[in-house]
Design a protein around this nucleic acid. Sequence first.
RNA 1: GGCGCCGUAGCCAAGUGGUAAGGCAGAGGUCUGCAAAACCUCCAUGCACCGGUUCGAAUCCGGUCGGCGCCUCCA
Length: 471
Amino acid sequence: MPLQLYNSLSRRLEAFEPLVPGRVGMYVCGPTVYAEPHLGHARGPIVFDVLRRWLERQGLSVRYVTNVTDVGHLTDDGDAEDKLAKRAKLERIEPMEVAEKYFWAYFDAMDRLGVRRPSIVPRATGHVIEQIELIETLLEHGLAYVSNESVYFDVSSWSAYGELSGRDPAELVEGTRVEVRSDKRDPRDFALWKRADAEHLMRWRSPWGEGFPGWHIECSVMSTKYLGDEFDIHGGGLDLVFPHHECELAQARGAGKPFARFWLHWNMLTLGGEKMSKSKGHVVDLFPLFERIDPMVVRFHLLRSHYRSLSDFADEALQASAAGLRRLRSAYASWPSHAGTGTPAEAWSEARRRFAAALDNDLNTPEAIAVLFDVARDANRARDSGDLGCAAAARALFDELLVGILGIEAASGEGDHAELLGAVVGLLLEQREAARKRRDFAAADAIRERLGTFDVVVEDTPDGPRWRRLD
RNA sequence: GGCGCCGUAGCCAAGUGGUAAGGCAGAGGUCUGCAAAACCUCCAUGCACCGGUUCGAAUCCGGUCGGCGCCUCCA
């Protein structure tokens, strides 16, 4: 049951084998931290978090690197002000304050989505020296040229350019939009280093004058610095394939580094059929969303579609996911945490096998989740027929797979007052049971209804009342 | 214009050559004082449409229609 992953570079499913036995190096392109984290930022980190957990499950040691772009790159192809500077002026703070603020906002949002922190989070601004070094190497190799204190990668000198995105370099010339005043020799060339205009805020000294690094170079540098010149997996959003990843690849290989072996790209999220994008003013910010939807529901919902499929974020679908997760959670809560008699360890071996086969098949999380729904149904049936050992084993299985691999909390959090809440609700339920015993149903229903106004749902079972909180 | 992706039930969504997973919603039933939850049963002779290949196609090939992405910053 080897793990198969779809490699964008070969455009096919390939069996994954780590370069160095027992160790995996993964690099994922993170966001440019200049604005609030939105839903589009969530899919990749969640998918890679599951991949990371799955690899670790196989006994592999994973070094997971996610960069954060904190150099403000251009808002368009001209020499207009960069995104960070623009935001800094808007908020009347330093560009670095903008980066800092949204850096933490991003990781706070990821925390709430259950995304484990990366092993290393390098920032572009902390690796300017290394970027300059790589640019110098490219100049030595004759793959780049200096022009008006800026440095550009010479696409015509690198015949493999286009190998990742499947583009023909020759045809790229016509497709590229005409640039007004550019120092480039060829419109396909891309900036490795840009000369800073007098008013440009973020600037560094370089052999070519004061300036700032191009967007693509940071990833070539930071990935290889921490993972080696050749490493296992490089991930990013599908919209980064061209030009970002194509350029990264050209730079790295041009400098003699074999670079990433597997390229994984997750598909976009759409809203009303259109790509969620900042430029269209068309995004769902995460923190406002968390006000009304449990972040775990968001995670669960995103995992209910395959990472390479387009996923439309419709409220109706989200509610369906919330209802589905509620079912899994209430099933889990109804299973004993340990059975009196010996629990059959192999009770759910078939489910475990199906789950593993699903994830091994290019991380097919929807299928893996379907297995868990099957387990929920079967375990509930076992529970109802008194087979508590089986139900307890299902609970352990959920701890292992739903919680451990998919990263979905099985218990909805009750907060710090969980114990007190339990005692108080228990007291009220005693009163309600007494009322029911004397067939005073009006009183019993009144208690249930009042509890309902606090989102405490009461359910009567043959073993007495059970309660739970709505999300 | 170039490159590429997608179209599966009311909704979401797997399946990519062997006779349509799963979830939500809905219908009926068991249980219940009534509910809720849970469980049982039902819910696409068909996978945008038209041709073709094949013993066999949602899955492969060709075409048509519809939607979308990248080619500019983007997760």
